[in-house]
Amino acid sequence: MTDATTQMADRRPTRRRRRRAGTAHIVVFLAPALLIYTIFSIYPLVESLRLSLFDGLDDGSAVWTGLGNYARLLFDSNWSVRFWNALWNNLILFFIHMVVQNPLGLLLAALLSLAPRFGGAYRTLIFVPTLLSVVIVGFVWELILSPLWGVAEGMLSAVGLGFLYAPWLGLEDSALTAVSLISVWQYVGIPMMLIYAALLSIPDELLDAARVDGLSGWWIFWKVKLPLILPTLGIVAILTYIGNFTSAFDLIYSIQGVLGPPDYSTDIMGTLMFRTFFGQQTQIGDIYMGATVASMMFFVILVGVTIYLVGVQRRLTRYEM
């Protein structure tokens, strides 16, 4: 010890003393992320909002139109028919996800949380479709449902239900539902995982306490677990809502193309925006109207998120666990 002590003491006076850290490092840590995010995400969004207030002239210059584009989109029948149709289809898409995907995710998560044998394997495998590109998913299902290949028809016939078969993706009445269900098939893994994680985070003691209080399996789920995971269900709902406006485009684009056939029955905001922006067949692209459609999507999402934040999230008490 004495050796070490004297060595230390000898060295100490000559030691260069550093000053306490200033604030430069905070800037270094934050700046890169902030810059990229601002330039490529926030700025384009703001710029889109700005562009939606202009109209293009033939010579390529832009003039201020105020809310003119919005008026056209909402009231000019050339636009409004397509717009309301797309918005309505989006809402149906959301509705189907809410009544099929999320309850299914909840059911699977609840079963998994009982820790059955091979639970890990089920969980892993059920998540597989979520990983796949929508392009792949789209084509896989298109092939399987196709009357040409006849896999779906063959399987239904095998169980005596062949008469039920129809080329669902091609029929105006069923196309949107079929696409929605494909999307449910692909994404059910996400609510399942989120809810499963929430269920796992409920402490065992609490469940033991419920058991001591005389509740059994089903009632414990209903009376204890479900109230505790409500905030997660709220998050799942809002994620589903936002997802409607993003991932749904890819699926419809790859299965049905950009026109939302048959007869616009699967046309949603995403495809409408793409068509408006880039043009399609007879229609020429219009960045100003494209920006307007995008901005409308922004407002629709904003309304949903606001309803969630003000109306839902506040009421869902988050319990400390």
Binding site: P44, L45, S48
Partner: peptide, 13 residues
Amino acid sequence: VPIRLGTVAILQL
């Protein structure tokens, strides 16, 4: 806010 909503401006940028 999905970044796609800014596509118009991203392309210009």
